[in-house]
Computed example of a mutant assay.
Amino acid sequence: MNEFTIKSFEQYLTTVRDELGIVEQNGQRVRRYFRGQTKRADAGYDLKPSIGRYAHLNDLSLAERDRLENEVLETFSNHLISYVNHLPRNDWEALAIAQHHGLPTRFMDWTTNPLVALYFACRDSKKDKNGNPCDSAVYVLISDPPRFSELRRQQKNGHYSAEEAEPDEPYSNDDDGYDGFGLDENDEPAVVSDDDLDTATDSGPRTPTEPALEGGLSPFDISSNVIYDPPHVSPRIRAQDGVLLACHQPMQPLEEKDVLEIVISHTAHDDIRRRLDQYGVFDKQLFPDLDGIAKWLKYRVFEINGVT
């Protein structure tokens, strides 16, 4: 994994500009995706989706894990009607809503905005088991996964191959996403009882190969990672410029060749937080609700001097 070490806000901006630059493929600009983590991958927080952090799932066969994911999604989807105005049109939308609300899924949260990723990398500084401050990191997806919208167009034309798919038009105005790419490493695994799964549906759970409500292609059937731009479910989505990476091997971390690591020195966290606040990339802007206002006031009043 290529690595850069950042010790200031300006150095981060320069690195993103000069080292990543403008990349073109087939005459089109390639959009980069960023992910901020308060813990580095080599410190034990691998680049994998949330469902991949439940080690006991490795004891299941691939078919058993697929069945479990489908059953959990079916249970979640059956409860949606009581809480949303518009039901999801397919498994992609349903799984994105589940991800947004904290259910472990095969989706990973990324953003097209490098400053938003920097916010999530530095907002809450961590310490190791010995009480020493930890460096954080921003990861850059330097591979070019196909996008769901492109695969869907191919499927409608009678052809689908994730490996051969050309990337969708970069820098589309339709690039929306969910807000969950900030990490909460303290989350405990949720427990789903067999009774809960048994009530998923009177007709039984879908098989992994059954088409979704529309669109045909299921997130459980992909043969490579896919970028998905989900629809809006809250004002946080556009504010955070988020996208989802659907992982076809959710129990495995991303390959090192696909990712560049920008290490953010812990010594720079306080200054970066202040600079991001000046640039309007902070709690109140990224979380346009009461939670964001409370977090913003907490920082401005109680944490501005680096005391947490």
Rank of each mutant, 00 (worst) to 15 (best):
D18M: 11
G216R: 14
V30D: 04
P230C: 05
T112I: 13
L244C: 15
D174L: 14
E303L: 12
A294C: 11
D174P: 00
F148S: 04
D291R: 11
R152W: 10
G182R: 06
K7D: 12
Q99F: 01
Q28E: 14
I97S: 01
S61R: 01
E164W: 09
D196Y: 06
P253R: 01
G21W: 00
V192S: 00
A121C: 09
E150N: 05
E169Q: 03
I237A: 12
E164I: 01
P219R: 05
N186K: 11
T75E: 00
D176A: 01
A162S: 14
A246T: 05
H159C: 11
E164V: 03
A268T: 07
G216H: 13
A55P: 01
R152C: 05
L73C: 10
V140F: 03
W92K: 09
D109I: 07
N130L: 10
P104W: 01
D168K: 00
D277M: 13
D221F: 06
E74C: 12
L95S: 12
P205E: 08
A41F: 03
Y279R: 09
E303I: 11
W92C: 01
L244Y: 03
I222Q: 11
D221H: 08
D175C: 07
D194R: 07
V138E: 08
R206H: 14
K257T: 10
A98M: 05
F148V: 00
D277L: 12
C122S: 15
P88W: 05
V84P: 00
E169T: 15
A96K: 02
R35D: 05
K48Q: 11
H79A: 15
L118H: 04
S125R: 14
E71W: 03
R65L: 15
D195F: 05
C247Q: 06
F181Y: 02
S161K: 03
E214S: 14
D195R: 03
N130R: 10
D168A: 12
T14A: 01
T105S: 07
H100A: 04
N305H: 09
G306A: 08
I222G: 04
P250M: 10
Q249I: 02
H100T: 00
D176I: 12
L213T: 14
Y279E: 10
N26R: 09
D195W: 04
L217E: 04
N58C: 02
F76V: 13
I272Y: 08
W296Y: 13
G177L: 01
L73F: 12
L47N: 03
I142F: 03
H101T: 02
S234W: 05
S224T: 14
D229E: 09
V243F: 08
G204A: 08
V226L: 10
E255C: 08
Q285L: 01
Q249R: 11
R31S: 09
G44W: 05
R236K: 07
R35Q: 07
P133T: 02
I97L: 15
V191K: 03
Y139P: 09
I6A: 06
L151T: 00
G52W: 08
T75C: 13
D42C: 04
P235V: 10
V116H: 00
N157G: 06
R152N: 08
A137S: 12
S172M: 06
H159L: 13
A98P: 01
E210A: 14
P250S: 03
A165N: 02
D258I: 11
I222C: 10
A43W: 07
E163K: 13
D109C: 00
H159I: 14
Y33M: 12
Q37L: 08
S203H: 05
